[in-house]
Amino acid sequence: MIITREQVKKTVAQAKLPIVGEELNGLVAQLQEFMDYVDALKKMPSVTASPHLPSSNIANNSDWQGESCLSQEEVLALAPDSCQGMVRVPPVIEHG
C-alpha cells in the first residue's frame, strides 16, 4: 500500500490532531514504514478469528442483566428540551 500525503492529511483531521508542516510530511514516511512492516502479517498461515479478549472466562460480560429503568419517552419527557429522540443541551461553545 502506498501512503499519500492526502491520506495522511485526512487521518490528521479524523484524529483531530494539531499536526501540520514538517511533522505531517514526516508522518507520510513513518506511516509507509509502519504499513510495510505490518504487511509481514499477511504471510502468516491464515486463521479464522473474531476479535476477542484473552480472558475467556470473563463473567462480567455474560452475566449482566439489564434492570428495569425509565423508557426513552419518559426520560425525554423529563428533559428541558429534546430533538430527534435525544436530550438537547445548551451549546458548549457559542458560535461567534
Binding site: 479524523q14 484524529a15 505490518v38 473474531s50 476479535p51
Partner: peptide, 19 residues
C-alpha cells in the same frame, strides 16, 4: 494516534492484528 486512526480506517487492519 495517527497509526491507530489510519489503521482503523483501513478495511482489515485491526482484524488482521487479531487474526
Amino acid at each position: 494516534l495517527m497509526l491507530g486512526t489510519f489503521n482503523l480506517g483501513t478495511d482489515s487492519g485491526y482484524e488482521l492484528g487479531q487474526q
